[in-house]
Amino acid sequence: MEFLDEFPTMGRSDLRDLKKSIDGGFREFSRTYGEGLENFFDPLLHFLVWFERLLVNTPWPIVLGAIAALVWFGARSVTMVIATIVCFMVIGYLDMWEDTMATLAIVSVATIICIAIGLPVGILMARSNKFQAAITPVLDVMQTIPSFVYLIPVVMLLGIGKVPGLIAVCIYALPPMARLTNLGIRLVDKEVLEAATAFGADYKQKLFGVQIPLALPTIFAGVNQTIMMALSMVVIASLIGVAGLGVPVLRAVSNQYLALGLMNGLAIVALAIIFDRVSQRFGRRMQSHREEGAGH
């Protein structure tokens, strides 16, 4: 009867031993390779620090001007530029400028890393069904596993700081990039691709001349998603020492400072909306041939 009432478990002491051996093994691993890994990520840390200092130390009117110029380049919309300037003015006036710059730095770097890894992974996934089948569950895990769970090994390996935070952000933000690149390439019209083949195009000519250009709207949706997810990780990343808008939010949560939490939270929202609109418009603009209407 006991067998039916309670699920048969492997036994308390066995289970403890199993966990212990995993923990021990990983500790051993991190003791052996931790330093090597830290050195490996050193250039990344330097770049991140340099970029953050650049944004913080440059006089704010210049930074604001550069941001406005980027928005104009991406969206080609006066309304967007004005809205962006107003947002940043308010953020600065409420004394969140430095935190915002730090967040901007880590989100930009995380996005670049995610594109640099996600794009080729997506391309390979589109090329080989086997690779796609192998990589899809990995992406599923990356997207759904609670971030706190993978923060543990990352912190054990690299300690507390910017790089582990960046890795945590990337793990969460990378999957949409790979997935949507893969999808975009696979959705390219078969007849168009067949035409390229029939004219003797090789794999590279087909990939860069036909597949990627035609997949761009979908790939841009991936970039957009990646940016959004990176921003949403900012608060969690601040748990392990990443500077930025997440830090005051965390402080507000633990001390019940409503106003502080609200202001910094809204600053994150403002950044998200600006990133989203600009990247979407940019993606659309690169596909101008689609918009000009069919037939005369």
Binding site: D189, E191, V192, E194, A195, A196, A198, F199, V210, P213, L214, Q287, H289, R290
Partner: peptide
């Protein structure tokens, strides 16, 4: 040696 014309044209839209 060969070239081809397709039923649904197969043109490159971009």
């Amino acid at each position: 040696k060969t070239s081809m014309v397709f039923q649904r044209f197969g043109l490159f839209p971009h």
